[in-house]
Design a protein around this nucleic acid. Sequence first.
DNA 1: ACACCTTTCTAAACACCGCTTACAAAGCGT
DNA 2: ACGCTTTGTAAGCGGTGTTTAGAAAGGTGT
Lengths: 400, 400
Amino acid sequence: MIESPVASELLSKINERRVLEFVQRNGPASRAVIARGGGMSAPTVSKAVVSLIRNEFLEETEASQAGFGRPGKLLQLSEQKANVLGVVIDADTCWIGSARLDGAVGEEQSISFRTPKTYDGLLQAVINGLGEITGNVKGDLSERFRGVGLSVPGLFNSRVGETVMSPNLHLLDGQRLAADLSNEIGLQCIALQESHALCVGERMYGAARGMNDFAILDVSTGLGLGIVSGGHLLTGNSGMAGELGHITVVPDGQRCGCGNRGCLETVATDTAFARLISRELGRKVGVKEALTAPAVNGSEEVIAQTVDYLAIAVSAVINIFNPATLFLHGQLMNSDPKIFKRVMRQAKKRTLSPSFKDCRILQSQGNKRLGAVAGIIDHLANELAPAFAPVGNGNTEQAS
Amino acid sequence: MIESPVASELLSKINERRVLEFVQRNGPASRAVIARGGGMSAPTVSKAVVSLIRNEFLEETEASQAGFGRPGKLLQLSEQKANVLGVVIDADTCWIGSARLDGAVGEEQSISFRTPKTYDGLLQAVINGLGEITGNVKGDLSERFRGVGLSVPGLFNSRVGETVMSPNLHLLDGQRLAADLSNEIGLQCIALQESHALCVGERMYGAARGMNDFAILDVSTGLGLGIVSGGHLLTGNSGMAGELGHITVVPDGQRCGCGNRGCLETVATDTAFARLISRELGRKVGVKEALTAPAVNGSEEVIAQTVDYLAIAVSAVINIFNPATLFLHGQLMNSDPKIFKRVMRQAKKRTLSPSFKDCRILQSQGNKRLGAVAGIIDHLANELAPAFAPVGNGNTEQAS
DNA sequence: ACACCTTTCTAAACACCGCTTACAAAGCGT
DNA sequence: ACGCTTTGTAAGCGGTGTTTAGAAAGGTGT
């Protein structure tokens, strides 16, 4: 049990967070609209707004919507101070961008660059990139930005903020990018494992908006899995939860990057598919080319070798997590409808039918950029006030 | 976002819950002790106690511990009204018992009986059993008990309170035992899937006391899995989360009760082990006998066929959930240290090493009875006030 | 142009909460 | 019997959300 004096200020903090989230979600609004929509009384909203303006989260605009009675002054996110930065680190490309606190990413305010070869190079490139984006900012970054969110690949230990191992980007191994960046630029930096970032982003601003029980399975070079259950991101004890790719499905199968044999990741990814088709064609092809290869269009049997294992992954996720929605993300499934259909058909066979019926399966674009941004925004919101779920912890279900 | 007016009463409710939980955990205590131990001021505790006494959760005893100054009056759980009932339904045996709100099960106040053959028979038997235990209660059950917690096997949909499918006890299929029971006896009845019950029980009163990230893998006839992550029981959208037993590990393996082929459950359970040994011996033996069979003591290879798959299950759990602690529960592992050791050795090979290092693996006795009781107690506590975790929702981790 | 209506926003009063302070109550030791 | 120590509660303070009342601001209709 956590010790914490339950002070009265808690209530006002909770309400402040509510007001801010209302504006984040619904755009500029007057106090009266917020009061009605957020289930608070008008004076309460007013007080929260005063505090939020003082802390430069909100600002009052002149604009006032036309209507019947007295027009209300709209409140919007502070243009000067309600901004964050997002950084996505990937094996080949990195991205940096700025966003408002509502997650709107300024596309003109973003850059991409090839991932440097060394850790120091990467750190410096990120620092330079941040400077480039915020070039017009005089003085300290912290005058306009409240923090930086990072999406990092590989196994990331969130308890200590360290990338433990990144199979596709070894320069991160053992490094603490968020901490190092924070030391350099003096802004708080929050890193999330990329699959977790995907989840947080989709939940806050994407297809999973408002959903409390969903999973995202990301099929690309590896298998990434992010889970939100009961409204909480499943992180595990150290943030390493979701490593579906390394469960054994072929007891004496092919060797995997993790050192083991027969991991799901060796047979149910883009890479595995490309390798298979390459062998079929007798020459090395990439994923894109593999998908359009005649062998693929010709025979179900060839794609079955990858797709049926993918179905095992899908059904494992549904069986184990019982999500209300499962988002599938990845070239393989989103390019060829035949493949998606087969995944669905096979997964249906392999999944417990009540859980399968209970789960909507959707294709998803996903977006690590939104994820990085959402990560820091979520953190800022939690800093403001704890998320408060007044319905208990969902352990039990009433039947009376 | 959940609408709920943040009333001031919230704070006092939270404190009431704290006081109650303090007494549940630490036994009878004076107001002063509770104030010191619970991080509240003395007057706050006094007020909460007044309310709790009024609602018959607590009562003041005459007893006063000897000491230096003025002796404090001890507060304890109400003997008259702070009681609940627990019901465990199993394939062959059922159990009914009463417990105090601190989870202390009155052993003399409990009975077991063979599971009836029909649903109506079961319902009636439970009602009769409850009557037997509470025989000395005059009038309504609700005069002494606050509710009934049930542990049920199989797939249980907690959203509608219905057992969807129970492979080992088909009479429950499609039934809503908790609701039916509630209608009959007029007490609120809460059902939990047995693996989830195990989790809740271990967390509240057992080996997992106070742990926020752990998993319990229950190996018996089937494979049961319960997960607590970030302090929350993982239920999924409908309470069907944790069905690890039906992920496919032998793509064209043996047929499983679920209708599929090669499920983990067909190769990594007590039953699977007994079947294997039976074939080895040329005659049918049970699990107990199988464990002591000469073939088992002789060769590693025989047990390896079951145990290595069990290791796959263990490593899947650790990879996917990254728990701080994993409890292994079941005859197979808890009887023969050789088997447990081999599970550990194989699991270590198959698990991502950072996650494996991060996880303590313990054997556990587990106890569905405590689970059933804990289920209803947890529900009552949530009814009193929402669980309050003031540290945010753990989505992100600061690195600055 | 003016009264009227509708809606927005805030000030005041009230009830509730937890905390600090002050004090009465209840035993023990000398 | 007196002091000592601890317990428990009453009063006052600052904080919070709500209701009520009223001022502010703009359109509508005559």
